[in-house]
Write a protein that binds this DNA or RNA. Structure first.
Lengths: 239, 239
DNA sequence: TTTTCTGACTGGTATAGACAACTAGTTATA
DNA sequence: TATAACTAGTTGTCTATACCAGTCAGAAAA
């Protein structure tokens, strides 16, 4: 499986071998892979060489290390990006804006009919409602509301910051399986128009995402309203 | 500068020390930093420990390695993201779409008045005009037109692919200094509406970016037209 | 003068080993 | 029974060394 006479670096060959097993589904999300010493022995290379291969896969998001426990197959890359602030933050940054997020409210509410159906819970079941405003250069760009069933994971207000929902999900031993997303144009309602500082009825982009765990249970419903109105501003990105 | 008794890992301390010098501007973009062996001697650590620090900074985009030459301070992160397909590709991927790009045309044209002014060249001076369609799940999402002065850098049609403009700029020894960007809502003209498969007069988002080199010379003008019309589709991201 | 070679530099790959820090289960102890 | 100590396993950090593979300038040869 590993060709020591090949011009390809050993760590690269090991990397490809591991990646293949993940992509073919032989090693599923959340499962532990062999320890570094086991790989080293199996491939007859040093542990540092195995570490280099694993490091690259960790950087690429294929694997996750846990000190004292082992190395685990990550949830699929795209699913990681879907969670937390990552997508908005990276999106805005890549466009040259300074992204920020402001927590508007954090509370538990009783699920209405639609929420109950989407999250696969009974009506009036408690869910967290996390409402954030996303800013780009201090200008409100979007309202994002996340709904998570209360009995699925314990959340606290001061833990709701960048990336922490996903890490809390991971620490609780849950693994994201897949997500569905919808996107459409709409018009701003009054409450939204106030927060986004646009007139009522102005065009907005509406994005909704549902995320599911490997257990089949829905994890969250994320509802985002992006302002789609006319605006123009110049930014200087001199260092 | 490096505290061997600190509980902080040595490679992390070295990492922070290098990062600080870059951020304070002591080491400017494009300049070479000390060699790995020099660092090892200066900090009295092994070369592998220095490599670990540098590796992390390379992964974070602070440094660039060139075999046989040395390690160099990268252009500022945000400026890297501005170039090539990166921003569109990452943006779309983070939203769960499959991004793609199609080269529509590649030619040299004579600069009109506005182009000449923006690119700081004389009127009728030759510029490359690179026109691409950006697709998400095979649906046209945007038209991107890039203008680069011909005498600044030599481009060939088959080299125009992901990220290659930036790497060609870097290889030619140029360093991006800063960029300005404007964003506004507009309506589709006929030619655009055909490519984007929308009706003429439909709302579009217009983004324009100007990128400048450390020499003060403008590198490029990028003109993007994003479709802003009503659309909705569902995507499944099961692995 | 031009070409070729050589040597000294750079980062890239790989080894073998050591000890630290953490996790989880088992065993000994109060 | 409850707690503490031990133990075997994991990844994390670090060393010292070796050789490979590009790059480039200057010396040697043509």
């Amino acid at each position: 499986m590993i060709d020591k006479t090949s011009p390809m670096p050993l760590y690269f060959q090991i990397e490809e071998a591991i990646k293949l097993k993940i992509e073919k589904g032989e090693w599923v999300s959340g499962s532990m892979i062999s320890s570094e010493r086991e790989f080293a022995e199996a491939y007859e290379v040093s542990r540092m060489t195995v570490r280099q291969a694993i490091n690259n896969l960790v950087n690429d998001g294929y694997l996750t290390r846990r000190k004292g426990k082992g190395t685990f197959v990550s949830a699929k890359k795209i699913e990681q990006k879907l969670l937390g602030l990552t997508s908005f933050t990276e999106d805005m940054r890549s466009r040259g804006y300074r992204p920020a997020s402001k927590l508007v409210s954090f509370q538990t509410i009783n699920a209405n009919q639609r929420l109950a159906k989407v999250l696969d819970i009974t009506e009036n079941h408690e869910v967290y409602e996390i409402k954030r405003v996303r800013l780009a250069n201090d200008i409100p760009m979007a309202i994002e509301t996340t709904f998570v069933p209360v009995d699925l994971i314990q959340l606290q207000e001061d833990h709701i910051k960048e990336g922490s929902l996903y890490s809390q999900v991971e620490n609780a031993g849950f693994v994201i399986d897949y997500a569905t997303q919808s996107l459409e144009a709409s018009i701003a309602r009054e409450a939204e128009s106030e927060i986004l500082e646009i007139t009522k009825g102005a065009p907005v982009l509406l994005i909704e995402r549902q995320t599911y765990l490997t257990t089949g249970k829905p994890l969250e419903l994320v509802h985002s309203v992006y302002r789609g109105d006319r605006y123009k501003f110049m930014i200087d990105m001199k260092r």
